[in-house]
Simulated scan of single mutants.
Amino acid sequence: MDSNDVSADLAHVLYTKEEIDAKVAELAAQIDKDYEGRDLLVVGVLKGAVMIMADLARALHSHVTMDWMAVSSYGSGTTSSGVVRILKDLDTDLMGKHVLIVEDIIDSGLTLSWLKSNLVSRGPASVEICTLLRKPEAAKVKMDVKYVGFDCPNEFVVGYGLDFSEKYRNLDFIGTLAPHVYQ
């Protein structure tokens, strides 16, 4: 699926496939450097992180172990209650491991803050965060994010794993969803 297939649904393209590919390669190079000589467990947060996780893992030049988590922050409508529920936990014991959480986007940071605290409580050697997108204007908690691809505007974005109603994840770029689609 490309931008022509969904042009009526998009306000504009924020990051092209080429820009994303270049940023993923840049992030992978820094991660390779930072974790040289150490085993790394890369934890993807489902479902949105599937694309960045796959591309990042392929761009790394060192061996990594991968695992997945699915968490839900639920409440009424589109507002989070701050209560986080684990829908799928890790299959890997974190004790003594270097863990890198991989996210597609950080909005408020509330769920990710809870997730990082949860993983830290499991006794890893370290826990860091890598995200393709971060919305600084939407942050409700201060998050120490070691690897950030792009700081993006506080708009409704889709593509490259990001969805609206489970659609648009399979776009190879990131665009801003037109308001008429979600209003």
Rank of each mutant, 00 (worst) to 15 (best):
E19S: 13
L115G: 03
V84E: 10
P153K: 13
Y168D: 00
V148E: 09
S76Y: 11
E26I: 04
M95R: 13
K23A: 07
E155S: 12
V102E: 03
W68C: 10
W114R: 02
G149S: 11
I20R: 00
V6M: 03
S62A: 15
L133A: 00
L27F: 04
R134I: 13
T111K: 01
D104H: 04
D39E: 15
D32L: 06
D2L: 11
R85S: 10
D89V: 01
E103C: 13
G149L: 13
A54M: 07
K33N: 14
F150E: 10
V157Y: 02
Q183T: 12
L162H: 09
L41S: 07
W114A: 07
L112T: 15
Y15V: 09
K140G: 12
L110D: 10
S81H: 00
F164C: 01
G75S: 05
L87V: 09
T65H: 15
E26H: 12
H12D: 11
D91S: 14
Q183D: 11
G96Y: 05
M95E: 14
G48S: 13
N118M: 11
D151S: 15
F156Q: 02
K97H: 04
L162P: 02
V141R: 09
D163E: 09
G96R: 11
T65Q: 15
T79D: 14
R38I: 00
G123M: 05
R58K: 14
V84Y: 08
V181M: 04
R122E: 11
V13Q: 11
V148H: 13
D107P: 09
E137F: 08
H180Y: 04
H180E: 08
K17V: 10
E18C: 10
F156L: 10
H61L: 03
I31F: 13
V99C: 12
S76C: 08
D163G: 08
Q183Y: 11
E166K: 06
V181C: 09
G44H: 03
S72V: 01
